[in-house]
Design a protein around this nucleic acid. Sequence first.
DNA 1: GATGAATGAGTCTTCATTCAT
DNA 2: AATGAATGAAGACTCATTCAT
Lengths: 187, 187, 187, 187
Amino acid sequence: MSKRQDIMAATLDLIHEEGLQAVTFSKIFKRANVGSGTIYNYFENKEEIVNALYREARLLMGEYLLKDYNPEASLYERFKCLQLNRLQFGIQCPKEYLFIDAFSFSPYISPELRSMDDAHQSREVVISLIVEGQKQGIFREMDSHLCHQLIHGIISSILKGYYVQKYPLNELQMQQILEASWKTILV
Amino acid sequence: MSKRQDIMAATLDLIHEEGLQAVTFSKIFKRANVGSGTIYNYFENKEEIVNALYREARLLMGEYLLKDYNPEASLYERFKCLQLNRLQFGIQCPKEYLFIDAFSFSPYISPELRSMDDAHQSREVVISLIVEGQKQGIFREMDSHLCHQLIHGIISSILKGYYVQKYPLNELQMQQILEASWKTILV
Amino acid sequence: MSKRQDIMAATLDLIHEEGLQAVTFSKIFKRANVGSGTIYNYFENKEEIVNALYREARLLMGEYLLKDYNPEASLYERFKCLQLNRLQFGIQCPKEYLFIDAFSFSPYISPELRSMDDAHQSREVVISLIVEGQKQGIFREMDSHLCHQLIHGIISSILKGYYVQKYPLNELQMQQILEASWKTILV
Amino acid sequence: MSKRQDIMAATLDLIHEEGLQAVTFSKIFKRANVGSGTIYNYFENKEEIVNALYREARLLMGEYLLKDYNPEASLYERFKCLQLNRLQFGIQCPKEYLFIDAFSFSPYISPELRSMDDAHQSREVVISLIVEGQKQGIFREMDSHLCHQLIHGIISSILKGYYVQKYPLNELQMQQILEASWKTILV
DNA sequence: GATGAATGAGTCTTCATTCAT
DNA sequence: AATGAATGAAGACTCATTCAT
């Protein structure tokens, strides 16, 4: 693994464990096993590391969200695919998920980065799926962004409960969640 | 207003504006218009201020959540009352709401505080309402904490979209949200 | 003596002994016997200390240069007075003299400061004396700034030789220098 | 041009532009277009570069100072030749002139180097010319080093004014300066 | 209680120097 | 000989905390 990746991995771990607020350079280079000056060969400052982490996490999430997405499948199948993908990304990449969640609205992340194309790609898919369902009279008529926020928010909230071990997330629970989120926006 | 309250209000404002990570003592006492030493008459350190803020915000939210709650009302009425109260707390006290949201899982908050009785009081009400609905065959059978998280999460997510002005929250939208959250957990 | 003065005195000493290039904050606060943070109660950064030093040195020199200057005296008397004052300032305040000499053209000094009124006051006196002498046919016709630079430069150069103990500067030598500089610009 | 010369030229340029204080190795090898390690094939450290620069500059000046010097010429001719050579060296090699001027009294330059034979060669010529003039009763009786400093200082000062474009230095001005410096030390 | 000058541990950052390639 | 990634000692600077007033 390259030094650059060592540094990023160490930083993500530390943010996950202690919060950005507590992450110092000294902790980073001790954890990453690099000299203090080495960081500056790769990043101008801490903000740049965080931005690089954000970019990587968003790319990773982008890959997950549209995994096995079949535009030909039924509305219900496609909806469940999208929701399941998001849920599984959260389960399999908790550090990345929480990082994105925490920093999506942070001034620490440059505006250009926040509106990355990759992430928006999947967002567009969700929005158009909502509009399609509404046209078919399946989904309730409401602001499509509100609607998006509803189904996205359910996953987000469920994951946070899962992370603090309020409940397990087995096959059963996951199906319950997918159905719950589907029903949330039905007429 | 007492110095103590000045300090707490200034701190909450600053956390809301810049994030805890960027809040320094120097900013706090400039904003609060007190001398630097004065803080130490009231708080041992920054963590204590944050904990005091957390306690106050939780107390405030506790009051809101059970406002006009009538244990005699129908399940549906009680459900809507609880959800509406949470939504309105978020709308009227955004700083407090976001603060609680951000720090509920933070190591900054002492564990004792996180499981404050006051806050749990309303939580118990919600949980028992869920169990009651499940017994009556109205709500789907699922882990009651998962269920709680679902309906809680919808409100949380909707509020965050509202804060960044993705959509307005008028009477119409609010009713849609309450119904959406109700349907989420129906059998 | 105030902390501010301690810091400035320590800095001037260090610049004199080792050159600005070698002056570090750590040396300054050790020499000045103050805590490292204390400097920042008085100065934003090192550049500000140097600028403050420059201002003080210029004010001090300004006082010296016009000491006992009698506008009614003969041209020769006035000329010698000005030259002697500059020479004596250099002898009595070597640190300040060298500091001004070294930094007058340095980007370290803010332009506003470099063109301080006080210093220019005495400069104007010298220039007008030169012009007066030229009108009377006593001084050679040449660019008045060139002329000023000549008589100023002689003092400057002599002082530098004196500082490295190339020769003593007693009453005799001083008179020789004043006469030499007078003759330099005679017709 | 060899790497060694590239490095020295880059360093002299940087010192001229920003002052020694601001010259870092990183700036040097970027300007010189060499790798960072390359410097150490030629110099132990920065001080050595500066010393090498000093030696080269002094050698260059040494060549200039005695250019066309005719020991058989009259005292006046020889005096003017020496003064003109110094002036022209300053005009044609400003970076070198200023460098020598700035570092001649700096602790950065090793003492052995400061008293280089080459440079002193021309110094001896000047001193003996002064003594000769004094013996002939042409020059005023004064410490020969003081005398040397006087005529040297005039050139130095004039050049500094010229560098900051206080005045031009054409044939006319140069003759005025040579005569002024001659008169300075006449009886 | 209230203050803010003084402090120094700790942070970010730079930069001369090394060393494997 | 030439390179430049890696280093860590040392620099500038911040900030929570103390304490005399």
